[in-house]
């Protein structure tokens, strides 16, 4: 009534100004947190800004980052058999796969993943029957060209870094 809301608003912003200095994990004069930053609870007061290049959240297990290949611990290679299920499942033709060998010996020779068109829908992973691909935890990819692709080796390295062992383990789909 009669500007009470305006005064209340001023009080709220003043409280936030003060609490950004005095409470929260980054209270003055400390500015950066070390190590992976825990995701804050909704009730946390104070400064919550993630100062990205210097601090990073740990992504949650079901985060859909870029597609990675999982390494078969026995052979050290990808489990991909170039069965083309993922290529058929992909709505945008992001994947290009060539294989070599016949029958049980068949393996992926090249596996090209065009990042610029991918919408991270995970249909390729759903279709994979050989425990070969999964969505990883990486999201930092930029380029100065329109065609940004990842090849098999890069995707295998990303898979090693993500620490995922089997397709769908975070989704409770591992049998």
């Amino acid at each position: 009534m009669l500007g009470r809301g305006m005064l209340k608003g001023l009080w709220v912003t003043l409280q936030h100004t003060i609490s950004s200095f005095t409470s929260g994990p980054r209270r003055f004069p400390k500015r950066y947190l070390d190590g992976p930053v825990p995701r804050p609870e909704p009730s946390t007061q104070g400064m919550l800004t993630l100062q990205y290049p210097f601090e990073k959240y740990e992504m949650w297990p079901r985060f859909r980052g870029v597609l990675v290949h999982l390494r078969d611990p026995e052979t050290g290679q990808s489990r991909c058999t170039a069965c083309m299920a993922c290529v058929r499942a992909c709505p945008h033709g992001v994947l290009t796969v060539t294989g070599e060998g016949k029958g049980r010996e068949r393996r992926a020779k090249t596996y090209t993943y065009e990042l610029g068109r991918c919408i991270f829908c995970r249909l390729c992973v759903e279709s994979c029957r050989f425990d070969a691909i999964e969505m990883g935890q990486e999201y930092e990819f930029v380029s100065t060209t329109q065609d940004q692709t990842l090849n098999l080796e890069e995707m295998l390295a990303l898979g090693d870094r993500s620490g995922i062992k089997h397709t769908g383990e975070a989704w409770g789909q591992v049998e």
Binding site: Y52, Y57, Y139, E140, F141, V142, T144
Partner: peptide, 27 residues
């Protein structure tokens, strides 16, 4: 693609990219 219209300096894939990824593109 925006490259059909204007010169683009940085391409950032993602659908949509995370806010961190956008800041990565800035860096």
């Amino acid at each position: 693609g925006a490259a059909e219209l204007i010169p683009v300096d940085i391409y950032l894939p993602g659908c949509p990219p995370r806010p961190e990824a956008l800041i990565y593109a800035f860096t």
